[in-house]
Design a binder for these strands. Structure first.
Lengths: 221, 221
DNA sequence: TTCACCATTTTTGAATTCAAAATTTGGAAT
DNA sequence: ATTCCAAATTTTGAATTCAAAAATGGTGAA
């Protein structure tokens, strides 16, 4: 199995919350499961530790990284900055076809909103943000964004999504699409920053659950 | 030797340009030199590959990553965004003592400018930018910034530093310190962006040397 | 002389092995 | 019965080993 493959597999295991934050990473078990020896596994763990997903304790094994409140705040802060930058660049560089794609993704997301399908809505939401980052045409930026959002998602926070909040988030997304269509870089950056700030507020206000992450526990009050 | 230690040592070797970009990384040789076996060395190389400093070619060894023109552009773009964000945050969070420190560093840098000591000037310059990032109080941001600047520095570009440019750069730094002292976040972000944009222009206009990096080849026209 | 093909050597990627550190277990003393 | 200490076991970190892939070199034919 290729090195990159192993890193990806373990990253997915961590992001799926199969190994909850703070939990010990069972080396032997993962070796058996992935049918590899400890050498490539440990290489992967070092890489993931550099990414911030794994915490290495000398002579005491490795654990899935645990996010503090401060970590989440910091990550959101950086994410905001990266998305704002991506928005500005995207406005300069996105093609008309690219805008059409984002518009389509937006429409699909709104449809999920209308149907009240929160899971699909979140998926569509993420797709739009990623499309904007991709449209920025900067692989370095895209890489950092991926790493930061991965760590954030790892937090598996639980925000009580009220109808008001949801409607507001959708309206923000309307504004995002609008700014992109007008290629208003500064405006898009501004909206994205506000959008992320609101999301962060929700998360920090609600606290976030670092427990068994298999249950998504998304509820609408 | 500790894992982190090995990663640091090799990172330094790469940043010092001891192994020039594009050159093969001699595994055996480094093992002898660092007095370690291939296992920890290869672990370090994977980590550095994830950081973008090393390029792994399957079944064909690893090379010091080579930066294209586009890479440099992308890195500068991201660096701009990160510094702008750091500036805004620093204005909110920096203490008076912190401002005093930056002011002192600035004064030292100006002194080096007056003496015409370009090397020391660059060192002071870097110290100021790093101090601002530190003052932002966001370790995630600081980490990304470190990684991006490391990769940029690796390019070892050669810019013909004219007296005009140098004077202008110093004036920009005056403005940076000023905005920080006024805690004008938006203003500081704006200046930092412009400052980095100018630097990038210089670099891309001049092209950059990917050769034997031991010679610094900084010259004043 | 040059090109192509095959054997040899080297290098890479990964499994195994080994020593040191940490954890657990069992027993003895209070 | 509980606590403390020491022996045994497990786990970790790193060296060594091993198989496969790539590079090298040498020979023979055109």
């Amino acid at each position: 199995m290729l090195h990159e493959e192993v890193v990806g597999r373990i990253r997915d295991i961590l992001l799926d919350g199969e190994i909850p934050p703070g939990a010990r990473i069972p080396e032997r078990e993962l070796c058996d499961r992935l049918q590899i020896s400890r050498t490539p596994l440990r290489e992967a763990l070092k890489v993931l530790a550099a990414e911030g997903l794994v915490q290495l304790l000398p002579h005491r094994g490795s654990r899935a990284a645990k996010l503090t409140d401060k970590d989440v705040r910091d990550l959101f802060e950086v994410c905001q900055g990266l998305e704002a930058l991506a928005g500005e660049l995207a406005c300069e560089r996105i093609t008309d076809a690219g805008i059409a794609e984002v518009a389509a993704a937006h429409a699909a997301m709104v449809q999920h909103y209308r149907e009240g399908d929160l899971i699909q809505y979140y998926r569509g939401n993420r797709a739009i943000h990623e499309a904007i980052v991709t449209a920025a045409g900067n692989p370095v930026l895209a890489g950092l964004y991926a790493s930061v959002t991965a760590r954030i998602r790892r937090a598996r926070y639980v925000t009580p999504m009220t109808p008001q909040r949801w409607a507001f988030a959708v309206s923000e997304h309307e504004a995002i699409l609008n700014a992109l269509q007008r290629r208003d870089g500064a405006g898009l950056a501004h909206i994205l920053r506000a959008h992320l700030r609101h999301k962060r507020e929700e998360v920090l206000q609600a606290g976030f659950a670092e427990t068994e992450a298999s249950e998504l526990a998304l509820r609408i009050a």
